[in-house]
């Protein structure tokens, strides 16, 4: 594989810069503002709280109500505010991924509301939103088996690359593979792909994506630990 530089100067397996801010939303039980390249996403967690209507609640576990939402202003052409099939599907699979981490059986008959809002979108929004949502859940103090870390990998202009931006995703031969793992257990919790690749390249993309996920996980951990400095002045 050629080590050609990408249009924004990144190497094939470089991620875009990621910045994490925790506890940004006062009204929420946990929150995270995540900047991932040009993507900006806010994730909040409310609950566990009472579920309405009541018949939708589950007597053996909390229901995870995950919403993936793109702001009307997030795309070049105004996006319709009505959630489409794509938004619904992403909400479902992302919520499922988080449910594999959160110990839902501790809160029967309740709902945990996890809302993500994409302010600006530049490809890879579902993995950015899920990474932020997992941080917001940990910030809310929810009991979890681990964190959910997520990255997209794929192919663009005959090159296997990690973390594609919109320009790379629009390439005619683009392959987009979104993956999330329960970390540090390394269990795959979300996996979606479309494109046209042989099995060898598929395995290669998967391998690279897992490496990217480990990088994201380290960043998530660092952000959580740094929120609570043990040393230093007591702040007023």
């Amino acid at each position: 594989m050629s080590e050609e530089k990408r249009h924004d100067g990144r190497k094939p397996n470089d991620l875009r810069p990621i910045e994490i801010k925790l506890g940004v939303n006062k009204n929420a039980d946990g929150s995270c503002l995540l900047t991932w390249g040009k993507n900006v996403v806010l994730a909040t967690v409310h609950g566990p709280k009472q579920m309405f209507p009541k018949h939708l609640s589950n007597p053996s576990k909390a229901v995870i109500d995950y919403k993936y939402r793109m702001a009307c202003i997030s795309t070049p052409e105004r996006k319709s505010p009505v959630p489409g099939k794509r938004d619904k599907e992403i909400s479902l699979v992302s919520g499922n991924a988080l449910e594999s981490a959160i110990m839902v059986e501790q809160f029967p008959n309740t709902v945990i509301e996890i809302n993500t809002l994409i302010f600006t979108a530049d490809a890879g929004t579902r993995v950015a939103a899920l990474t932020a949502a997992s941080l917001a859940a940990a910030d809310a103090g929810l009991p979890m088996k681990g964190l959910i870390s997520s990255v997209a990998g794929g192919r663009s202009n005959k090159q296997l690359v990690l973390d594609l931006d919109k320009q790379e995703e629009d390439a005619p031969d683009a392959v987009d593979l979104a993956c999330a793992m329960l970390m540090p257990q390394k269990e795959i919790a979300l996996l979606q792909m479309d494109g046209f690749v042989d099995i060898k390249e598929t395995k290669e993309i998967l391998k690279n994506t897992v490496k990217g996920i480990e990088t994201v996980y380290d960043m998530q951990k660092k952000a959580l630990i740094e929120k609570y400095p043990l040393e230093g002045e007591i702040n007023e």
């Binding site: 699979v93 499922n96 991924a97 449910e99 594999s100 793992m181 329960l182 257990q185 390394k186 269990e187 795959i188 919790a189 979300l190 996996l191 979606q192 792909m193 479309d194 494109g195 046209f196 690749v197 042989d198 099995i199 598929t202 395995k203 998967l206 391998k207 897992v210």
Partner: peptide, 30 residues
């Protein structure tokens, strides 16, 4: 799958899978 190529995949529901399981299932699908 399409011939020897993978054209899309999706993990569904709330459980998790290992990378080895994914690779094996791709081979079986082909």
């Amino acid at each position: 799958v399409c011939d020897k190529n993978i054209i899309s995949f999706q993990k569904g529901k709330t459980g998790t899978l290992s990378l080895d399981q994914i690779n094996e299932m791709c081979e079986i699908a082909i």
